[in-house]
Nucleic acid binder design. Structure first.
Length: 300
DNA sequence: ATCCAGGAACTGT
DNA sequence: ACAGTTCATGGA
């Protein structure tokens, strides 16, 4: 992590292939998004560090992030944690040069990497958030998925007001672990999604699944196994979490409908590719399947 | 109305 | 292992 602590604010120095505006465009894809707010070329995000709610105002000037704190003055330790979170949020540990080299040899990706050069996978560093969000979004359209998330966060998350507007924190696994299925049914979760998410919250709150331990595992298939052994987490959700939370560039949600639609568009097909056809295309993206998928999503 | 959406578990073979 | 079925609801 490349950053500097300027006490009242912090700076982060991104790696070479990086485009802040393009990342913000992705963050701004749904008007129902509630976990951050994009205003022009700035994004506001609420974080919890050292048990304190801390609003961050993130801008980009002269090739570096400038992170200010419009509300509470942060402690020294907190500032470092904020830097860590943002570094991870924008997936800045990746060196994309190899991906771009590979993409220029690929008929599907060539245009996309040119168009979106510097776009990073926008990550979801919290394991409970990424998994429960993926479960919420299973088999429903994105708009409704965001609606469910909004209700969920507004019901069970904490918030902080700044200039008349609320900034929300995703609910903790500990909070959700205490709920009953009926609680989530009132938000129009299905019985199954409600049960999966509460069960998952209990698992995470009791240390039955730990991000740091998953990060230690080298073999992708072993990570998949650890994740899919939990109810509600199938292959799609496992690969989604590996890509958005565990920073595995090899993760590849081959059954994803959005991915299929993007491929259909890019190739001008009259139907969506099958899972087998999608796998075959992925053969050209070895090592960077997650980035290929994310760039394709971004094209939608 | 009708189709299907950023799937997964369960059932039967 | 593999295919078919069920879940449940809103968007387009």
């Amino acid at each position: 992590m490349n950053w500097s602590d300027c006490e009242t604010y912090i700076e982060l120095f991104p790696p070479k292939e990086f485009n802040f505006s393009e990342c913000l465009q992705f963050l701004n894809r749904s008007p129902l998004e509630i976990l951050h707010r994009v205003k022009g070329e700035t994004v506001y995000k609420l974080l919890q560090v050292q048990d304190v709610l801390l609003l961050c105002k993130i801008s980009f000037l002269d090739g570096r992030f400038v992170v200010e704190f419009p509300t509470a003055p942060p402690y020294t330790v907190a500032r470092k944690q904020v830097a860590k979170y943002i570094w991870e949020w924008f997936d800045m540990d990746q060196d994309l040069e190899e991906f771009y080299q590979l993409a220029t040899q690929d008929d599907i990706l060539r245009d996309l990497v040119q168009k979106y050069a510097g776009l990073r996978i926008m990550c979801i560093p919290d394991l409970f958030e990424v998994l429960s969000w993926a479960i919420m979004g299973q088999q429903i359209n994105l708009t409704f998925a965001y609606t469910l998330k909004k209700r969920f966060v507004e019901q069970y998350g904490e918030y902080l007001s700044f200039e008349e507007e609320p900034y929300w924190l995703y609910p903790s696994a500990e909070t959700i672990a205490e709920l009953s299925v009926e609680d989530l049914r009132t938000l129009q979760f299905t019985n199954r999604k409600a049960a999966y998410i509460i069960e998952l919250a209990k698992t995470l709150a009791s240390g039955g699944l730990v991000k740091e331990e998953l990060l230690e595992i080298q073999d992708d298939d072993l990570i998949r196994k650890a994740l899919t052994s939990k109810r509600g987490i199938g292959p799609w959700t496992a690969d989604y979490a590996m890509m958005k939370c565990l920073h595995r560039t090899t993760a590849f949600p081959v059954a994803d409908v959005g991915l299929h639609n993007a491929l259909k568009n890019q190739l001008g097909l009259d139907r969506k590719p099958t899972i087998e056809e999608t796998k075959a295309m992925g053969e050209n993206w070895k090592g960077w399947e997650a980035y290929a998928t994310f760039y394709l999503w971004h094209s939608l």
